[in-house]
Amino acid sequence: MKYQEKFGVMASLTWNSNHWKAEPTEEDLAYSKYDYVKDHAEAFECLNFATDILPAEKEGWFIGYSPILKNRLPLAPIQILFLISTDHANGGTRYVVGIYGFPQLKFWFKRNPSLHPYYKKYHSGSFRSKVEDIILLDTYLPITNLSVQKEGFLPEGKQISQQGWNYLHSDNVENLLGYALKLNPNHQGLIRLMQKLQLNVTPLEEEYEEEDVILEKADSLAGIAKLEAQMLNLTPNKKLRVSGYIERGSIATKVKKLTNYTCQICKAFEVEDAKGFKKEGGGYYIEAHHVVPMARQEKGTLSITNILTVCATHHRQFHYGKVRDLEHTTDTFRFDFDGTAIEIQKISIPKKGQ
């Protein structure tokens, strides 16, 4: 592709634990950096990637939203919009989570309220694309102010905007998409979009070949055990990638199964029903908490023995309440939880043959 300035834009969203396909959790709202979201307890971006479950507007358009793009829009037409968000439950790691290809932007696109009840509450958006050009990444792309310069994700000298959005030149877009394809090599929607943009669809040189093989096989207890052994010595940038997989992938699901969807704090306090609440669609809701934040990049922080399963209330208490670490042993955590000392057994992976 011939080099072009202002070819794309990167803008941010409030984190959505339901993958921007349903309303945010209370924790998502509490962690949002946008005043409107906190004041009104609603995030209009919560439907951005619900293209598989919500109807499109006329002619196949699907409307999205970013708090950053509600008042000030790019002056130049753009070919691609990258949406980024900060995962509050993963040490504040920032990710590129999805893409709107060939977007149209204006201050307000109105949704048709007759199409779905959600469209009555979340009635507007600030951009739209055709459904086939909207992509939610299966594996999000971690970014930092260091990596955007090292990998050429932003124009030289630029940092990720906190209160606005970033223009991207065509080389930045190629680098971002190449890296996204490396993390999502079988994502057909991503490949199609790169072809439409007339970009080379070959991923960048593979840096994570060994880890990729491990991750692909980490959908069994034996796979998790192998991943556990490999994670401890990973470099920081590889840890970011693996940590995202732990937080959202099959590992987190299996950890919750291992604790039978119970809040380990409730259980320590001998609450009669320590299980998470029953979801409308079936199954139980419980959250995963990393005791030592992954952002510290310390040995063992990526291990599943660093994970507790907790209810939403106790998860918020870990972040905002009076909780102190007393002692961590090989098998247990001890906390001072609002003046009460409690001990919790760490999650363990059943050994082969058990």
Rank of each mutant, 00 (worst) to 15 (best):
D219C: 15
Y167E: 05
N233V: 10
D28N: 12
H290L: 01
M194W: 04
H314R: 05
K254S: 11
Q162S: 00
T144L: 07
P24E: 03
K120P: 02
I160L: 14
R334P: 13
A218I: 12
Q149T: 06
V242A: 05
G249K: 00
I78G: 01
G223Q: 13
G283R: 07
K278Q: 10
D331T: 13
A268M: 05
Y285M: 04
A312W: 05
H328T: 13
I265K: 00
T51M: 09
T313N: 07
N175F: 03
P77M: 02
Y36W: 15
N90C: 02
V131Y: 04
S220C: 00
L181P: 03
I63L: 12
D171W: 13
I304L: 11
W20F: 01
E343W: 08
I304T: 08
E23W: 02
D336C: 01
W108Q: 12
T332D: 13
F7Q: 12
E156L: 10
S303Q: 03
V131M: 05
I78K: 02
L204F: 06
Q198L: 07
T309W: 03
L326N: 13
Y36C: 08
Q195I: 11
R111D: 01
Y3H: 10
Y3K: 07
L234W: 12
K226E: 13
V9G: 05
H314I: 04
E207Y: 09
P77Y: 04
H40V: 06
A30E: 12
K322C: 06
P24K: 03
Q345R: 10
Y65E: 10
T14D: 04
W15E: 00
L115W: 06
D133Q: 11
A341E: 15
E280M: 04
E247K: 03
E5K: 10
A89M: 14
F335I: 10
Y36R: 15
